[in-house]
Structures are given as C-alpha cells and as structure tokens.
Amino acid sequence: MPVLSAQLRAAAARLAAAGIDSPRVEAELLAAHVLGVARGRLLLIDDVTDPQAEALAELVRRRAERVPLQHLTGTAPFLDRELLVGPGVFIPRPETELLARWGIESLRGVADPVVLDLCSGSGALAVALADARPDATVYAVERSDDALPWLRRNVAGTQVEVIPGDVRDVALPAPADLVLCNPPYVPLSVAVPPEVAHDPAEAVFSGEHGLDLIPVIIARAAEVLRDGGRLGIEHDDTHTPAMAALLTGWRAVTTHPDLAGRPRFTTALK
C-alpha cells in the first residue's frame, strides 16, 4: 500500500515546482480532503489505498495547473465557517475576514440590527454577521445567476434573506444599521494570479481604475442607512485617495490595512 508520508512529499514537491506558495500545507489539505479527515489527523495515518493515492495525485495535478485549492475541495474557510464554493462564485479571501470582524464590532450596542451585504457572492459577509448576531436581520444582495445557487446554499439555516438583483437598481430594505460590501474592484490593467482567472471576471474587475461600481455602492448605502449607520467597503490598495473623495460628507472615514499592511477597506459613518 502507498505510504502517506511519501505521497505527501511527492505532492509538495510537485506543487512547489508549480509555484504554489505553501506547497506542503496544500498537499496536506488535499490529502485530508481525499481521506475525509481533519488535516491534523494525517499524522495518525501511515498508509493509504491505491484509489486514495490516485485521487490525491489527480488533485495535485490539477492544483499544479493552478486550479484553485477551494475548487478542488469544494469549500473555503471564512471565520468559523466552511463556505461552499465552486465555478461561478468568487472565492472569499482571508483579508475580507477583517471587514467582517469590523462589521461585527461596529454593531456592539445596537439591538436587533439590520445589515445589508451588497455584491454578496458566496455570502461570506452575510453569514459571518448572521452567525455573530442571531438577533440581526441580514440581507444578501447578488445579481449573478451563477453565484446565487452558492449563496443560497451557504445561507441555508441562517436568518439571511437573499435579494436577487443588481445593486444598481434593486429595491433595498431601509433603514439599515450597517452596509458591508466586497465589490469587484481590481483595475482592468492589473495582472492577477492564475487562480483568479477561475473567479468570475465580473466579481473581480471593475473598469479601468477598478472604481466603476464603488460610487454606486456608496450612493445606495447613503439611501438606506439610518443616521449614525455604518458603511464598510473593501477596495484596491491604490484606492485610498479616491475613497476619501467619494466619501466626502460622511463622518469618521477611516481606511484599514489588510494582513500585509496594505490599505484594504474603508469605513464611514453616515
């Protein structure tokens, strides 16, 4: 029978040769997925079956071709959840957890809050807020016919209500206490990693400067937020001056860094 430790060494070597940043970690995650165990339990497994070894080798081959890890496992971690993801929906990134945590903290002391997650995609922000605040009324707005099935799967069993439609003109509930959004914001000229090519382009790019949709988000938030309500928008690290200009008239405008220290999301108070 194939020895798991040897399989992992070979998998990590192939992933490293393909330019994967954390080849050993990803090899272990793929093996854990194939074996149906937590990654931490791999140390307890000596041998694998031939079909398991073949399944792992196939996943490693596809990952070496830069198919996203999350598409291979079918899930993406986000705070305390494993969200269902796949072709047609944007894969949530760890950086967006910072926006979710800010949103949760911003509702401290607000009873029965109303929250809108615009451009919801997988529902990562909406589900995070719903999990943290069972007393909240949470709406997730998404227009993509491909993303909506993933969104509905992820919000199942929560109090999140899905609103299908384009954020530009769909009717939004009001008044709201918090509006969060991780919109498409990458400028068209920016080269992205190969994995990003598997995300829907409409969820990644937003015009020449990456700012085509953000002014709409700000305008819609201004329509629905109560006085004193809060807005949080993720954006490109080049957008800080533009965000300050677009949020003229709002209070407490603050840009927050991501895990690498780059400007990543801006918050404001209506």
Rank of each mutant, 00 (worst) to 15 (best):
A53D: 05
R220L: 03
P164G: 14
V224D: 10
I217W: 00
G40L: 02
D21V: 09
R101W: 09
A191L: 14
T255K: 08
L225I: 14
R39E: 06
G88D: 03
V162Y: 09
L29E: 09
V89L: 05
R62N: 08
R41M: 05
E195V: 03
G40H: 00
R153T: 11
A128P: 06
T75F: 03
D146S: 12
K270S: 12
V110D: 10
L269E: 15
R264V: 07
V25G: 10
A17R: 09
D21M: 01
E195L: 03
P241V: 12
L107D: 07
N182G: 00
A76K: 04
A111D: 15
A16Q: 11
L72T: 00
A38Y: 13
P87L: 03
R66K: 15
L118A: 03
A136V: 04
R251H: 13
V25Y: 05
P184N: 02
A268S: 05
V89E: 10
A174N: 02
R108T: 15
R39V: 03
L35D: 07
T267M: 03
V167I: 15
R133M: 06
L79W: 08
L225S: 05
L99A: 11
L107H: 14
I214K: 01
Y139R: 04
L118R: 07
D227V: 14
P149W: 01
L180I: 09
A76G: 04
I218E: 04
V186A: 02
L56W: 00
D146T: 13
G109D: 14
L259D: 11
A31V: 12
P257F: 07
A219W: 13
Q52L: 05
A64P: 05
R251D: 15
V160M: 06
T255N: 11
R93E: 07
A201Q: 06
K270C: 14
V167S: 05
G249K: 02
R220C: 08
P2A: 07
P2M: 12
I45C: 05
D199A: 03
F90N: 07
H239T: 09
L72N: 00
V253Y: 02
L180H: 06
T240P: 11
H209M: 10
V192I: 13
A76N: 05
S122D: 03
E97H: 04
V160C: 13
S144F: 09
A6R: 15
L72D: 00
R61Q: 08
L44S: 14
R39I: 04
G229N: 14
Q52W: 04
S189W: 15
H239L: 06
G249R: 02
V48C: 01
V138G: 13
A126H: 12
R39S: 10
V141T: 01
L213M: 10
R264H: 10
R61M: 05
Q7Y: 01
V110H: 01
R101N: 05
A242H: 09
R39C: 02
T158R: 11
E65M: 12
L178I: 09
A242C: 08
N154P: 13
F265Q: 03
I104E: 13
G157A: 07
A53K: 08
P68V: 03
R39T: 09
G121H: 00
E161N: 06
R66Q: 12
L99G: 02
